[in-house]
Computed example of a mutant assay.
Amino acid sequence: MLRLRIKDEVSRLKAVVLGTAESSGPTPRPEEAYDPKSLEHILAGTYPTEEDMIEEMEAFSNILKKYGVAVFRPEVLENCNQIFSRDIAFVIEDKLIISNILPEREKEVDAILHVLDRIAEENILHPPEEVHVEGGDVMPWNNYIFVGTYTGTDYANHITARTNEQAVDYLRNQFPDKTVKSFELRKSKNAKENALHLDCCFQPLGMGKAILHKNGFLVEEEYQWLVDFFGKENIFEITSEEMYQMFSNVFSISPKVVVSEKNFTRLNNWLRVQGFTVEEVPYAEISKQEGLLRCSTLPLIRE
C-alpha cells in the first residue's frame, strides 16, 4: 500500500506519477485545442512530435530516478495525450483528490488505476460534479492550501478557467485545519496573458524562495499578499515572455534540488546563486502545450 503524504511543494520526494507521451495521438485540430498556446502551435505547424516529447519525459524520469524516487507511469491509452498527470488528481496530506476535469479527459484517470489500487479507498476523494478543480491550481503549503481560481460570471465561456469557487469551498470543508487562500487568475485567449493554472504564474521553492508573475493575478492585493508572505527579496519575478515559456512550472525534488528547463538561463543562474542544485532537462517541446515539469507530475509521497 502507498501511504500518501504531501504537506508542501518541496519536501524530499519519495513517490510520483509521471505522465507519458507515448501514443499521444496526432496533432489536434484547432477546435480540439485545450488552451491558447497549443492552438498557436497547431496553427503554426510547430506542434510537438510524439518522439520528441517521449525523449523529454525520459530525461525527466531519469533525473527523478537518480534521486531515488519511485516513478509510476500511466497505462498507455491509444492516441491519448497523457502527459499532464497533475490535471487528473492531486494529493493533500494523506488524501488523493480526483479532479473533475474536461469530460473528454476522464479516461486518463482509468489509466492510473494500478496506482489508485494501492491507496486505501477512504483516502481517495471524489468531489461532487459542481466542483471543478485541477491539480495545477492547488498547492499545499504547510498550514495553507493555495488555490488558483476564476469566479467571473463568464467562467463557462473560458476553456482556460479550470477551478471554480465551489472547489475552494470544497477544499475548506475537507481540510478544516488548513487556511485555504484563493487567487483570482487572469484568463485570456492570448497565450502570453493567460494564466492557465496557478503554477503558471507562481511556484514556491525551498529555502523560503518563490517564483512569481504579477500579471497572472487579476487582483493586485492577492499578488501583494504572496510578495509579503515570502518577502520581496526572496522572489524571482518573471516577465510575461517568461511566463509564456513556463518559467514558474519547475519541480522540486527536495528543498535544495529543483528540476528546470535547460533554456531557462536567467532563472537557473538565479537558483544556483540562491544555493539550489539545478537539474536541467530539455522540455521545450512539451511546453508548447502550455504545461511543463510540475504539470507532468502527480506527487504521492514526500518525506
Rank of each mutant, 00 (worst) to 15 (best):
Q289F: 00
L271H: 11
E40G: 00
A111M: 12
E40I: 08
N100R: 07
P28A: 11
L18H: 00
Y283M: 15
V259K: 03
S24H: 01
E165Q: 13
F247V: 06
N263Q: 09
R118A: 13
L77K: 11
G45A: 09
T149L: 10
N190Q: 11
P204D: 11
T20K: 00
D199L: 11
T151F: 12
D154A: 14
E22G: 07
H114Y: 12
N234A: 09
F202T: 11
I54D: 07
K181V: 15
D137F: 15
S287Y: 00
A59C: 10
W141T: 09
R118Y: 08
E279M: 05
D199C: 10
V115R: 00
H114T: 15
L96R: 08
L196E: 12
V133W: 05
S188W: 09
E58P: 02
L267F: 07
E222H: 12
P26Y: 01
E233K: 11
R73P: 13
I124P: 00
K288F: 02
A167K: 05
S85G: 05
F72H: 07
T297M: 08
I92G: 02
M57F: 00
K65D: 12
W270M: 04
K232V: 14
D52Q: 12
E122R: 15
R186H: 14
F84T: 06
E31L: 12
E222R: 13
K288P: 01
M139S: 06
F90C: 08
T179Q: 13
I238E: 04
G45V: 09
Q166L: 07
H132I: 14
Q289P: 00
R3G: 11
I235A: 04
I159S: 10
Q224F: 03
L298V: 07
A33V: 12
L96A: 15
D35A: 04
M246Y: 06
E51H: 09
S248H: 01
T49L: 14
E56K: 13
T153M: 01
I235N: 04
I238Y: 01
